[in-house]
Computed example of a mutant assay.
Amino acid sequence: MLTKQQNEDLSGQDVIEKYPKEQRFTLAILQDIQRKYKYIPREALENLAKYLDTPVSRLYGMATFYKALSLTPKGENIITVCDGTACHVAGSMVVMDELEKAIGIKPGETTEDLKFSINTVNCIGCCAIAPVMMINDKYYGNLTPKLVEEILSEYRSESDE
């Protein structure tokens, strides 16, 4: 969730000023802004454009090109489901169906309360424990629908505290 301070200031100025005014740092700056806000606010994009003396359209192009970057708010818990060959064969779509049923959103969406976002990737790199998903930076393998529900319940109780 955004803190009160983050709600008031979406400029990303503190992140931007950590970097020299050089174009080669653009992607790194965008990634750090994303890390701070869980998305790239319009205000931060415009601020970065001024800082680097580059058109907003160029930054917008980068932000929409890279799948890891988002111009819309993401959830507190970002769920990434692998749908690579090994995971697909092992039942990643069953995992996805369970997630959709359990939290009520589809890939690319975020819950209204900003607790969860779901996305898919072509490979997480954990084929030996397929099907696999990540929640934030934690990996979960050998998934079943029952296991998915147990994992989600941990994150629901954490966010209720």
Rank of each mutant, 00 (worst) to 15 (best):
D32A: 15
D32Y: 02
D32P: 03
Q34T: 10
R35I: 04
Y37L: 10
K38L: 12
Y39V: 09
Y39E: 13
P41E: 12
P41S: 13
R42T: 13
R42I: 11
E43Y: 01
A44R: 07
L45K: 11
E46T: 09
N47I: 04
N47T: 15
A49D: 10
K50C: 10
Y51I: 11
Y51F: 15
D53C: 07
D53Y: 00
T54C: 11
T54V: 15
V56M: 10
R58G: 05
Y60N: 14
G61H: 01
M62Y: 10
F65R: 15
F65A: 15
F65P: 00
F65V: 08
Y66D: 13
A68D: 13
L69M: 08
L69I: 04
S70K: 05
S70G: 12
S70E: 07
L71M: 14
L71F: 03
L71S: 11
L71D: 12
L71A: 11
T72V: 12
P73V: 07
P73Q: 15
G75T: 05
E76R: 12
I79W: 03
T80W: 01
V81M: 04
C82F: 01
C82V: 02
G84M: 05
G84C: 05
A86F: 04
A86H: 11
C87H: 04
H88S: 11
A90I: 02
A90M: 06
A90D: 04
G91T: 05
S92F: 02
S92P: 01
S92A: 14
S92I: 03
S92V: 03
V94F: 03
V95C: 08
M96C: 11
D97E: 15
D97T: 09
D97W: 02
L99P: 02
E100N: 12
A102G: 11
A102S: 15
I105H: 06
P107Y: 02
G108W: 00
T110P: 01
T111C: 08
D113R: 04
L114I: 03
L114D: 10
L114K: 13
K115E: 12
K115T: 13
K115S: 14
S117D: 08
I118E: 09
N119S: 14
T120Y: 01
V121R: 04
N122L: 10
C123K: 02
I124C: 07
I124R: 02
I124N: 06
I124H: 02
G125S: 05
G125Q: 04
C127L: 11
C127F: 04
I129P: 00
A130Q: 07
A130R: 03
A130E: 05
A130F: 02
P131W: 03
V132R: 01
M133P: 01
M133W: 00
M133V: 05
M133A: 10
M133H: 02
M134I: 01
I135K: 05
I135M: 05
N136Y: 02
N136E: 09
N136S: 07
D137P: 00
Y139L: 15
Y139K: 14
Y140E: 13
N142P: 00
L143P: 00
T144V: 06
P145K: 07
K146Q: 14
L147P: 00
V148P: 02
V148L: 06
V148D: 08
E149D: 12
E150G: 08
L152M: 10
Y155W: 05
R156G: 03
R156K: 14
E158K: 13
S159E: 12
D160E: 15
